[in-house]
């Protein structure tokens, strides 16, 4: 299944990028200038400071992942000399926190 198939039917657009392009065209400025000008407006629709909401969602997800990791660990066939660790994030230290120390 090609999850990009929808593209060929209806061209999808990022809401924020649409705003940036429109603003850039309207003021005839660069994309980067336009982006910084529209960002505050776009952010108004995001619950950045609603810590209860954030913690609830993130906590729920973290719990899901812990349960999944536990289930995977139980079902894993007996392993060899400890294979590769966690995924590497280009944004920072490799491995990240996802792999708890292996026994």
């Amino acid at each position: 299944m090609d999850t990009a198939d929808q593209h060929y039917e209806e061209k999808f657009e990022f809401p924020l990028w649409k705003m940036i392009k429109a603003h850039a065209a309207k003021k005839d400025i660069s994309y980067v200038k336009a982006a910084l000008e529209v960002l505050p407006e776009f952010e108004k629709g995001i619950r950045y400071r609603d810590t209860k909401f954030e913690e609830a969602e993130v906590g729920k997800r973290a719990a899901e992942l812990r349960a999944l990791q536990e289930a995977d660990r139980k079902n894993r066939p007996p392993g060899g000399p400890g294979g590769p660790g966690g995924p590497g994030g280009p944004g920072g230290p490799q491995g990240g926190p996802q792999g708890a120390p292996k026994k």
Binding site: A24, A25, D28, I29, S30, Y31, V32, K33, A35
Partner: peptide, 8 residues
Amino acid sequence: CWMECPKR
């Protein structure tokens, strides 16, 4: 270059 160009 694409994002900095003043004339897009």
